[in-house]
């Protein structure tokens, strides 16, 4: 039985199209690389200034001047480039990054995202998340459907400070795959073995569900 995180990542890998430029956020999204087919030709962008990075091959020696934005030592693939921070964010603001994957504290049915600050508890600074969220055309949120106390993270309206308003395209959790549409949050896939009623009970947001067309993952 795969873990919840494995299932989220395996499903998320299906969102990537060969030829894309892809940014992977810190935490769970960083691991997505390992779920992409090896023959897939994509360039991974890391906002500290590299396009075409990849995890270090096991056993290979780290280059101390090559890290990704999460601080892990990295290698590069053919066609890679390195550049300064202003250029890296120009690439983001000009929407040259095709798709980005990020974690979330909260995400809502309008596509608002909160993933950087919990006032009074956690405020390390926003880093590169605001510009990625606002300017990358397709933002896919990868997160657990509920927090560790069981509270819903998929809300009617975010309560925490926003990373960016109306920026999320799709949400992939351990329970469902949801697309943000003009009509609301549409469930595309539901987790294997989960009842629709149980999904609704675990979610604060209103969900649009067409049981005839619902996929499983």
């Amino acid at each position: 039985m795969p873990s919840d995180q494995d299932r989220i990542l395996a499903r998320a890998a299906r969102e990537v199209v060969s030829g894309q430029i892809v940014n992977l956020g810190i935490g769970l999204p960083t691991r997505l690389f390992h779920y992409l087919p090896t023959e897939m030709e994509v360039l991974i962008h890391s906002e500290n200034g590299v396009l075409g990075c990849q995890p270090l091959a096991p056993g290979s020696e780290a280059d101390l001047e090559m890290i990704d934005s999460g601080g892990a030592y990295i290698g590069t693939r053919p066609g890679a480039s390195v550049f300064d921070s202003a250029l890296s964010f120009a690439m983001i603001r000009r929407s040259r990054v095709d798709i980005t994957f990020m974690g979330a504290f909260e995400v809502d049915q309008l596509g608002n995202l909160a993933n950087w600050k919990i006032p009074g508890k956690f405020s390390p600074g926003i880093g590169g998340a605001m510009e990625l969220a606002q300017k990358v055309d397709r933002l896919v949120v990868l997160c657990s459907h509920n927090d560790k106390h069981g509270n819903p993270k998929i809300l009617r309206q975010c309560r925490l400070p926003l990373t960016a308003p109306r920026c999320v395209s799709r949400i992939i959790t351990d329970k469902a795959v949801m697309e943000v549409t003009d009509a609301g949050l549409e469930v595309i896939d539901i987790a294997e073995g989960l009842e629709v009623a149980a999904l609704r009970a675990a979610t604060e947001a209103e969900l649009i569900i067409d049981e005839q067309r619902l996929g499983r993952f």
Partner: peptide
């Protein structure tokens, strides 16, 4: 004083 990373880079640039 915190700034989004790309804005910090651009302000310096």
């Amino acid at each position: 004083e915190m700034h989004p990373q790309g804005l910090l880079a651009e302000k310096i640039r």
